[in-house]
Amino acid sequence: MSDDNSHQSNQQTSSIWSKGLKRWLSTAPETRDELVKIIHDSRRLLEPDTVAMLEGVLELPATQVHEIMTPMSQVTGVSIHATPPDIMQAYLETTHSRYPVFEDDSQNNVIGILLAKDLIPFLVEKARGGTAYFDLDSVLRRPIFISETARSDNLLRLFQKNQMHMAIVIDEFGNTAGVVTLEDLLEEIVGDIEDEHDDIAGIDETNHIIPVVGKTDTWIVQSITPIELCNQQLGTTFLHNEVNSMGGLVMHSLGQVNDLLGQKVLIDDCQLTVLSADERFIQEIELVKGYNG
Rank of each mutant, 00 (worst) to 15 (best):
V190N: 01
A150M: 01
R151C: 12
I189G: 01
N175E: 15
T181Y: 05
D184M: 07
D135M: 09
Q160H: 08
L186V: 15
L186T: 07
A116M: 13
L119P: 10
I170S: 04
F159S: 05
I170G: 06
L182Y: 00
G112F: 04
M164Y: 08
R157L: 13
I146S: 04
P121D: 12
S138A: 15
P121I: 01
D171S: 04
A116D: 10
S147N: 10
P121T: 09
T131Y: 14
R142C: 07
E188S: 13
G112T: 04
D104F: 10
I146H: 05
T176I: 05
L123S: 10
A132Q: 13
R151G: 15
R141E: 11
N109S: 12
K117N: 08
R141C: 06
L123H: 10
E125W: 10
Q160C: 05
I170R: 02
E125Q: 15
D135H: 02
A116K: 13
D184P: 03
A177L: 09
F159Y: 04
S152N: 05
S106I: 01
L114P: 04
E172Q: 05
D118L: 11
N109G: 01
N109D: 15
I144G: 14
K161Q: 11
S152P: 00
T131D: 15
F173M: 12
L136K: 00
S147T: 08
D153A: 06
I111T: 06
F122T: 13
I113T: 05
V179T: 10
F122E: 06
D171R: 00
V139M: 03
A177Y: 04
T149G: 06
A177H: 04
L119A: 12
F145L: 11
L140A: 05
N109I: 06
A132F: 05
Y133L: 15
E125N: 15
Q160G: 01
I144M: 10
R128H: 14
N175H: 14
R151K: 11
E183S: 08
A127W: 12
R141N: 10
D184I: 11
I120C: 05
G178D: 02
G129C: 10
E188H: 03
G191M: 06
R151T: 11
Q160I: 13
Y133W: 10
K126P: 06
F145M: 05
E172I: 03
S152M: 12
D192R: 04
V139N: 07
G112S: 03
L182P: 02
G129M: 11
F134N: 03
Q160W: 05
F159H: 06
H165P: 01
Q160L: 12
D153M: 08
I189S: 03
L185F: 09
L182T: 07
A132H: 11
S147K: 02
K117W: 08
F159N: 05
S152L: 15
N162G: 00
R141A: 07
D153G: 06
E125F: 13
E172G: 01
G178R: 00
K126A: 15
G112P: 07
V179N: 04
K161S: 11
F122C: 08
G178T: 09
D105W: 02
L156N: 07
